[in-house]
């Protein structure tokens, strides 16, 4: 025979269990949009996935077009240490109030979790010119994808040979 307090605790536990189940179901059915998935677990690592899945998760069925001269991606040809690979991005894409680069994604194809970082810019940035250091698990392509405010995607790619992989990634 349960005391009232015990049964209340049990009911609460069951309720939590049900809610968790629903949340998991939502994820596996792909009902959540990419933004929600990114926001759902702040600070938790992204799922292990192939780069194609990452691209679908981030951009859906939108295909990036080669940026050519528009984005200059400066990364080392050979990086001795995969845990610090400097990446520099310069671009002449417009930064006007009605048409500007909204997000910049850095993606390393062969990393266990390909998305390195996502940046958000504003028209006040003036000009796309930025740099950071990323980890790379091994020799692979680095992609930089710029998402314009109207949804157009521009992609620049370069292979970086990594001598010693930066663990995890």
């Amino acid at each position: 025979m349960n005391t009232p307090i015990e049964s209340r605790a049990r009911r609460r536990a069951l309720k939590t269990l049900a809610a968790t189940g629903m949340a998991l179901g939502g994820l596996s059915l792909g009902l959540l949009t990419p933004a929600q998935v990114l926001a759902a677990a702040p600070g938790m690592p992204l799922p292990d996935e192939a780069v194609a899945d990452t691209l679908v998760r981030l951009f859906g069925d939108r295909k990036p077009q080669p940026a050519g001269e528009h984005i200059k991606l400066d990364a080392p040809l050979i990086a001795e240490n995969g845990s610090v690979v400097p990446i520099r991005i310069e671009s002449d894409l417009p930064m006007a109030a009605d048409n500007y680069v909204k997000h910049v994604y850095i993606i390393s194809d062969k990393n266990r979790r390909p998305l390195n970082a996502k940046f958000t810019l504003t028209p006040e940035s003036g000009r796309l010119s930025m740099a950071t250091n990323v980890r790379m698990a091994g020799t692979t392509d680095v992609r930089v994808i710029a998402e314009m405010s109207d949804g157009t995607l521009w992609e620049a790619k370069q292979e970086v040979k990594v001598t010693v992989g930066g663990c995890g990634g």
Binding site: S83, V84, V85, N116, K118, T120, L121, V134
Partner: peptide, 12 residues
């Protein structure tokens, strides 16, 4: 003016 969402694949 600028925001970044970084993952574990950004250097130390």
């Amino acid at each position: 003016v600028f925001e970044a969402e970084t993952t574990q694949a950004v250097s130390q």
